[in-house]
Design a protein around this nucleic acid. Structure first.
Length: 274
DNA sequence: CGGACAACCTGGCGGC
DNA sequence: TGCCGCCAGGTTGTCC
């Protein structure tokens, strides 16, 4: 569930809580949560480093330390929160890793499904090197998007989910962007007119920006660092609305599978041909 | 290049 | 109440 808007919301919540804090130690209770290096190396290397900045690249949370980058991917059910070291939270039931901060607080990573990953690396490009552009970046314009679309034959839905094509879009905001653009998820990328491509560029950005404005979508697992829910899900046009009337035309929203993902769309607003 | 699918995992839910 | 099986979806890797 955490896509660009959810990760951005987490980053904005964490930033004032951990920036400037020095890490005293690390504990990990599910080995595979640590992608690299191994726990012993990780703990020794992270200790004593100060968190200089908290940022986002695609769906990765990137904390710049003195000599390394501490990177977290929430995958589907990961949650990050800061708490007093002796405090108990509901999400601790699935606690996988914690960082001891010199303030006496802990930065905790909880993850029921154990898909989330934590990395410590001095070279960020080993993680983010193959990612496509940030869709909300100032220097990413309609012409850049249209150039990337050119010659691609894949279904639009599959292409939007491809992190190497454009970074940060996941299943929810792909469906929302395609609805807003009036484009069927099975349209081939190279079948778009210039107008359609430019429209899609703008609706991707609008869907993501609205998601951030509503602080992400708490369908089930996602929570902000303070434990509260985002409200993006209350504003969806199609995602999770199969069988319900389209907010624009009243036609029932359909749910199909595209690229092995549940895909929601309105047959009237997103015609398959032309 | 692109598509299909398994793997990684668990909780929540519908059906019986 | 309880058990069963399915579904959720980000990413990687494999195979065709």
């Amino acid at each position: 569930m955490p896509e660009l808007p959810e990760v951005e919301t987490v980053v904005r919540g964490l930033r004032p809580l951990v920036t400037g804090q020095t890490i005293a130690g690390m504990g990990c209770t599910w080995a595979r949560t640590l992608h690299s290096p191994d726990a012993t190396t990780f703990a020794a290397r992270v200790a004593g480093q100060t968190i200089q900045a908290v940022n986002r690249r695609a769906k990765y949370i990137v904390m710049a330390l003195d000599h390394d980058f501490l990177v977290v991917h929430l995958k589907m059910t990961g949650r990050l929160y800061v708490t007093a070291a002796d405090a108990i939270h509901d999400a601790d039931r699935w606690l996988r890793l914690h960082l001891d901060l010199d303030s006496g607080q802990q930065l905790r990573f909880s993850d029921p499904r154990k898909f989330g990953r934590v990395y410590l690396t001095s070279d960020l490009t080993t993680i983010t090197g193959a990612l496509g552009p940030e869709p909300l970046a100032d220097d990413f314009g309609p012409a850049d998007f249209m150039a990337r679309l050119a010659g691609r034959k894949r279904h639009l839905k599959a292409l939007l989910l491809d992190q190497g094509f454009i970074a940060g879009v996941g299943n929810i905001y792909a469906d929302e962007a395609l609805f807003r653009a009036g484009l069927h998820p099975l349209r081939r990328a190279d079948s778009l007119t210039a107008d359609e491509a430019e429209r899609l560029y703008h609706t991707i950005r609008a869907a993501l920006a609205d998601g951030i404005a509503h602080e992400g979508a708490s369908i089930n697992w996602y929570r902000k660092p303070d434990g509260t829910r985002g409200e993006s899900q209350d504003h969806f046009f199609v995602y999770g609305r199969g069988g319900q009337p389209c907010r624009r035309c009243g036609h029932p929203i359909e749910k199909i599978r595209v690229a092995q993902r549940g895909t929601h769309f309105c047959r009237a607003c997103q015609p398959e041909h032309l």
